[in-house]
Amino acid sequence: MRLQFNITSLSEYVDKIFGLAGVKEVVMTNDPFNPQERHLWEKVGNRDPRFKAALRLDVLLNHYENASAHLAKEGYLLGSPAEPSTIKEIQRFLRYWMHKTQAVYVAVSLPPDIKIPEDTVRSPLLEKAVLPVCREFNVPLALMIGVRRSVNPRLGPAGDSLGTADVRVIEYLCSTYLDNRFLVTMLSRENQHELAVTARKFNNLMVFGCWWFLNNPTLAEEITAMRLDLLGLSFIPQHSDARVLEHLIYKWARFRKIMVSLLTKKYLELWQSGWRLTEEAIKGDVERLFRNNFWNFVTGRSSGLTTQ
């Protein structure tokens, strides 16, 4: 096995993994506060167009003291997070990294007790710095809500858990910032129905994926079936959430089986009701679910359902 790796180029290996997974391109998580990632972007950049970037802002929005210390070392002049001068400096930082990475969206994972607006540093940073830059670059903000970090510190990175969040945070953002688009996934099973209903009410909201602890066959099938019932084809059924490239193989192979089963059931119901299906229509539905919904939403070519 090691010999095979030694004689296989990186490009060839990526080709092989993508081929086995049935994937054309992926979006990476890129953290500008991570020293190794920052060094690679500054010195090398992205040389493979199949790998797109998402600008990850967990440190900025969840650990502002760490972020501000880093920004100060980089020459940014920061005061209180609510001060206009600080907001302008953070926007300058975000613009630099948006240009550097050509990010297709901005992303952050958030705890279940998130409240927006709230009397913390997170609210002004999100509302006055992040969202305006997202509008400026015409990219969505991806919110991954519900993670509780280090509930068992002895397990290190494996010690995280989850909690139920308040979906009214999403309602507030979607109704207050109509010119912003929001990609949203939530970690708690208990949030899934309310999230899908909320997506029926706002065309600037796109629900995506079965994240982390929900990425098992039983829950993924249940959640995706519910979304098909409530949202039709107007959602993104799954995302890779792959820590290493090889995870793409089993995650997509497993989810495709789920999707085939659910769509077969829906098409059979349509057929029995008198609807005559065509192969072209089915291919169009699959292309929409697995590719077009994502790219149309992140580029602003279309949003979710019409606001009801």
Rank of each mutant, 00 (worst) to 15 (best):
residue 116 I to Q: 08
residue 64 Y to E: 02
residue 135 R to H: 07
residue 104 V to M: 09
residue 92 R to M: 04
residue 120 T to F: 01
residue 66 N to F: 02
residue 108 V to Q: 01
residue 86 T to G: 04
residue 99 H to N: 14
residue 96 Y to H: 14
residue 103 A to Y: 07
residue 74 E to D: 10
residue 69 A to P: 04
residue 89 E to K: 12
residue 106 V to G: 01
residue 57 L to D: 09
residue 102 Q to C: 12
residue 60 L to R: 12
residue 130 V to L: 11
residue 116 I to R: 11
residue 66 N to A: 02
residue 127 E to L: 13
residue 75 G to R: 04
residue 134 C to I: 14
residue 86 T to Q: 13
residue 117 P to S: 01
residue 133 V to Y: 02
residue 100 K to T: 15
residue 103 A to L: 03
residue 126 L to D: 01
residue 76 Y to L: 02
residue 79 G to A: 14
residue 84 P to S: 04
residue 124 P to A: 14
residue 109 S to D: 06
residue 130 V to D: 05
residue 120 T to L: 05
residue 131 L to D: 11
residue 130 V to S: 07
residue 105 Y to K: 06
residue 128 K to G: 00
residue 128 K to Q: 15
residue 71 L to Q: 06
residue 55 L to G: 02
residue 72 A to H: 06
residue 91 Q to I: 10
residue 117 P to M: 03
residue 82 A to L: 11
residue 74 E to W: 14
residue 107 A to P: 02
residue 121 V to W: 03
residue 111 P to L: 01
residue 88 K to D: 12
residue 109 S to R: 05
residue 128 K to F: 08
residue 114 I to P: 05
residue 122 R to Y: 15
residue 114 I to S: 06
residue 72 A to S: 12
residue 84 P to F: 04
residue 63 H to E: 09
residue 109 S to M: 01
residue 98 M to K: 10
residue 72 A to P: 00
residue 75 G to K: 06
residue 58 D to E: 10
residue 126 L to Q: 08
residue 109 S to V: 00
residue 125 L to P: 07
residue 97 W to Y: 15
residue 76 Y to A: 07
residue 124 P to T: 12
residue 87 I to Y: 00
residue 130 V to K: 09
residue 115 K to F: 03
residue 65 E to N: 08
residue 73 K to A: 08
residue 106 V to S: 12
residue 65 E to K: 12
residue 133 V to C: 05
residue 71 L to W: 07
residue 73 K to C: 05
residue 58 D to I: 09
residue 58 D to V: 07
residue 69 A to M: 09
residue 97 W to A: 00
residue 95 R to L: 01
residue 125 L to A: 01
residue 121 V to A: 14
residue 97 W to N: 09
residue 120 T to D: 15
residue 95 R to W: 11
residue 61 L to A: 01
residue 132 P to M: 15
residue 72 A to Y: 02
residue 65 E to C: 00
residue 135 R to Q: 12
residue 61 L to C: 04
residue 74 E to F: 07
residue 86 T to M: 03
residue 122 R to N: 08
residue 54 A to C: 05
